[in-house]
Amino acid sequence: MADIWMPEAIKVDLGDHAPCDTGFPPKAIAHITADRDDATAAHPKDLVPFANLQALFTGGKREMAPHILWSPFTGTFAQFFPATSRSKSLLDKQGGTRTNRAGKVVLQVEALFFPFCRVNGEVFATLADTPCKGWPELNGWVRSWGVPDVFPMGHPHGFTSNRSEQIWETKGGWYAHAHVPENDHVDPGSWPEFVAAEPFPGAAFFHTGQKSPVIAAMHRRLVAEGCNRYTADDVLDVWEPDDVKSYAAWQQKLGFSGSDADGTPGASSWEQLQVPHLV
């Protein structure tokens, strides 16, 4: 089963959990915090600190808190609700579709960003221009909850709205805030492209002493999936006995047993691990 708390996130549980409407397909919602509206290309403004937004969602704006607050500049995350609960970042009109709940999951992500924010002297016009640190981990965690890598109403490009109740209720995937019925926001304006998965290199690739950045990427995904059987002295990018133990834990998590959970990667378990593709 997928982790209800994203392993990389600071856990800030607000309580007040409530179930989703599981008759709808799984969704993720892309927002930006847009915490300043006076920045321009000619007059950029400094990015608001992550800690300020985390404090806001645990204080005066807790009734608008998402699941995940994400800094695309540092790869820092804070999580306020478990994946299995609704969060509160969408307007939900009485008598309409229950926007915060309409899905097996409705994972809401607030990226810490506003257009023409300034970070370490550099100005960023769109979210996609940022380093997008942590996006592979975020994309992988959302994917682990069955949310497909697709924007059913189109990948966001620009601050325009495009809403369809019928698509929203019948299609799983990612939605911009600008796509959600009953809402009038037009964010996020842009969003990073989905992370391609590293193809299965074959079982023979995984032998003692094999050194590769693919091993390091796999290591990070196993840790993120709660299958960490590593010790402090393990080498990140070298296949070692603790890689076998950790991968066996992943196979067991998927329901494999016996020789199918011996710690040697197979095509099926590798595909489900979704190791980010290395460019």
Rank of each mutant, 00 (worst) to 15 (best):
H179R: 06
V180P: 14
P181V: 12
P181F: 09
P181Q: 12
P181S: 12
E182R: 12
N183P: 14
V186P: 01
G189E: 11
S190C: 11
S190I: 05
E193P: 01
E193N: 13
F194G: 12
F194D: 11
V195S: 10
A196T: 06
A196Y: 03
A197Q: 07
A197P: 01
E198A: 10
E198I: 02
E198D: 10
P199K: 07
P199I: 05
F200N: 05
P201R: 11
G202S: 06
G202Q: 11
A203W: 04
A203Q: 13
A203K: 14
A204C: 04
A204H: 13
F205S: 15
F205I: 09
F205T: 12
F205Q: 09
H207Y: 02
G209K: 04
G209T: 08
Q210T: 15
Q210A: 15
K211S: 15
S212C: 06
S212Q: 06
P213E: 06
V214L: 15
I215P: 03
A216H: 02
A216F: 02
H219A: 01
H219G: 01
H219Q: 09
R220N: 07
A224H: 03
C227F: 02
R229V: 01
Y230T: 01
T231E: 08
D233P: 00
D234L: 03
D234M: 04
D234K: 00
V235I: 14
V235Q: 01
D237T: 01
V238Q: 06
W239E: 07
E240Q: 15
